[in-house]
Amino acid sequence: MASEYGPTDVRLLVDEHYRSLYRYAYRLSGSVADAEDLTQEAFCTAHERIGQLRDPACARAWLFRILRNHYLVRLRSKPPLPTVSMDELANQPDHTDETPRDWDAEDLQRALDEMPEAFRTPIILFYFEQYSYREIAELLGVPIGTVMSRLARAKAFLRSRLHAQGAAEKVNLATSRVP
């Protein structure tokens, strides 16, 4: 029902979603300033296009999509950051002991920042939003098989970064980006 969120009711969206939108933006961008800017831009865009929101139940996903589009625009306008090649992540089943070493939110963000965007977004949506594979595929507009593959590799990368001592050495740290 479009009427629930009329042009003047974007404040309802702000009330309800600004925290999760900011957190998502922060995990995507890794920067407080960028995250705040992205959040504000997303709500401005939402305000302009509020008429496109037909089902208020989809508001959260809609806002996330808007924010990600803003993020991608920014990403394209900036020089590429060094990221890790995901190609050489271990594809073999990992039965090694995953005794957690001490890691915190900063370690997690660092690991996320090292990922190419094509892997970072699905892993954030998976962990942060607890989206299903199908939902991620729909939101990103990629086949579900691609989402599964990217998530498997991204999760393996995160674990190797956050857990096993020296597991990072398994990762090819040559700077490159996923096409």
């Binding site: 702000v14 600004y18 900011y22 504000q40 939110a105 607890q130």
Partner: peptide
Amino acid sequence: AAVMQDVPIPDGLRGRV
């Protein structure tokens, strides 16, 4: 998942939005 969602919200963010 728990750590990922644990992002502190800057003071006054809502007002700035």
